[in-house]
Design a protein around this nucleic acid. Sequence first.
DNA 1: CGCCGACTTGAGCAATCTCAATCATGGTGG
DNA 2: CCACCATGATTGAGATTGCTCAAGTCGGCG
Lengths: 270, 270
Amino acid sequence: MAHSSDIALSFSAPRKGRATRRGARATAAEPPSLRDLPLFATVDDATLARLSLDAKVETYEDGAVIFRQGDQVAAIVILLHGFVKVLRIASCGDETLIGIRADGETVGEPPMDANEHYRVSAEAIGPTSVLKIPAARFARLMKESQSLCAAVVKDSKDKIAALVGEIESLKAQNADQRLAHFILSLCPPGEEQCRFRLPYDKRLIAARLGVKQETLSRAFAKLREHGVRTETRDVLVESVSRLAEQCEQLGRPARLPSERADDPDREDAA
Amino acid sequence: MAHSSDIALSFSAPRKGRATRRGARATAAEPPSLRDLPLFATVDDATLARLSLDAKVETYEDGAVIFRQGDQVAAIVILLHGFVKVLRIASCGDETLIGIRADGETVGEPPMDANEHYRVSAEAIGPTSVLKIPAARFARLMKESQSLCAAVVKDSKDKIAALVGEIESLKAQNADQRLAHFILSLCPPGEEQCRFRLPYDKRLIAARLGVKQETLSRAFAKLREHGVRTETRDVLVESVSRLAEQCEQLGRPARLPSERADDPDREDAA
DNA sequence: CGCCGACTTGAGCAATCTCAATCATGGTGG
DNA sequence: CCACCATGATTGAGATTGCTCAAGTCGGCG
């Protein structure tokens, strides 16, 4: 399933114009420019060079398993292109989606020594390419390079912040609110009206938000009243700021008992 | 709905007789032996000594705010004794419990530089004592000591694992199952039958499990059929292994259609 | 003794899930 | 070009879970 290739990252880091530039070799001095990856942005040159020595690019097809919960950690995995499902598998077989990683993010935890086990599984969503650096080497370098270690701390803190946000939304928001926040997170900043395509299918979005597909569909339907038009996979947000305001509103049981002096029932302000 | 209150856990932490041990001095040479704290167990002596210089102990009463979301990070906080609520406050004022920290755990994230802001609030549950080391010094030492940096990475990884588990249970388990798991986590390992006292009041347990108090109460009632007796705050688990087995069972819709030929009440089959 | 806060319990309601049917869409083969 | 299927998405109806509101119990403390 895994199509290894210690060369040829034909498309590695397409977000920037550079990166691939004339066949960036994997094991070569500069794989897909490690420096461009957020994790390595602040790492010292010497360490980066050494990391590059063992870095290799792998590509996966849709649905391919990148690593499996319980397996020994073989490498640190950094997503170059595509999306990756991170999920947790219970003893009874239930799979729970923990998160979805996008370009530049690390998948799973950076290994501190060569004897850890993955605590989650990772699976490609659509064709993806990842950068892998063997766990043993990475762990060794982390012991030697303060800047690498600090980078890992930073990465972990970001992850913790994201997970905390996730817990907050699961505990404190209903499906409609979670969807609204999700959509807002997809809107390019600074634009009042925007149109874009959902990054993955609705089944996945539902899992990401922690609801069933049908519930997501109904949530989309409800947001239609708040200026969110959808056509299969394309979304048009008529007013980002209005949607943001109405996020809290979506929480109450339809209408709030206080100060309802003048609104018998308020569908929308027309 | 803020509700910070002084919930008067008059009995808060009766498990140990000692608390602030006759005014443990702050800036003294050896606060409560940093070496004993999990975070510092593997830190080199020199760094530990330097950390000790600025470490000080502080005590809080029930309900006291230890730090507030949004404030600038002043220190790393390590819980010495008691329990601490970690919560997140939304713009609308909603407080969401993220977790509860116990002895030896860090509260909030270790600061990497002196200019961060807390992303959560922390509040004492019952009388607590914490160790504080100023953020600036801690951050500086983290840059200088590889072992300290590694310790922080380890701490973060543990936190991530805990948060991932939390998300898994919120997404994949119902209230009964979450309570069962919670109770199991309180059982001393290796004992088939056990009796203990809940670490904090049921309101907090409910928040921790992400349900309302009433729902928790009903969940306790349901577990009674599975060998979990409760008396206000004391719990008796008749069979730990049995409870563990029945965790999954608690998920299904009461009874599963398969292999249920002898179903006692079957009136709705008309 | 009586209040207060924590806990429990009941009844109705809201959100979400489940099951099932329908509909759109894209690809395939005839 | 169209019938046909597979998959994803939508929609409806009913069951279930958990929430809200409200009353009532229990235990400690002033």
